[in-house]
């Protein structure tokens, strides 16, 4: 999983590490308010499933790493879906500086496909949307990253 200065591979821990750094640069102005949420991201491809833990911790976001399973994490809700849908979303963000049309986080998860948000219960699922703008900001921060190439 090597990268050049102009490229970053997706999905990798390096990608999410860089995404968190990028998001935190602008989140520190606190205009969106704080967010407290431990979110799992599950990316499914024909050959593998990759899982990552993102910790929205007040006015900053932490990347808690790649995990084999969410079982022993404190993840409150998991976003899951095919790698292609995630990749298309990030491509759209890089092309337009932000997610547009049906590539926003809410739009992708609205009907439960192509991405689905699954909380421990409905209150946990709803909690994700209490921070919809912060999550969108986090994802949109990919526009400041090197070009994303599919793994």
């Amino acid at each position: 999983m090597t990268t050049t200065e102009t490229e970053v591979k997706f999905p990798t821990a390096e990608f999410f590490d860089k995404l968190v750094v990028s998001a935190n640069k602008t989140l520190s102005d606190k205009t969106l308010g704080f967010a407290i949420l431990k979110l799992g991201i599950e990316i499914v491809s024909p050959n593998s499933i990759n899982r990552y833990v993102i910790d929205f911790d007040g006015y900053e976001i932490n990347f808690d790493g790649q995990v084999e399973s969410f079982d022993n994490t404190e993840v409150e809700a998991v976003v899951t879906g095919p790698q292609l849908s995630y990749f298309d979303m990030f491509k759209d963000i890089q092309q337009n500086s932000m997610a547009t049309g049906s590539n926003t986080f809410n739009a992708l998860t609205m009907a439960g496909f192509p991405l689905n948000v699954q909380g421990q219960d409905q209150v946990a699922t709803d909690k994700v949307f209490r921070f919809a703008e912060t999550i969108q900001h986090f994802l949109d921060s990919a526009h400041q990253m090197p070009t994303i190439v599919e793994q």
């Binding site: 739009a107 909690k127 949307f129 209490r130 703008e133």
Partner: peptide, 23 residues
Amino acid sequence: AGEFLSPSDVEKRIFRLCMQDEA
């Protein structure tokens, strides 16, 4: 649904901000 169906980014932002409050 409004955010999903919004005809422009302006409405998308409106619905996203409102959904946070409503949730």
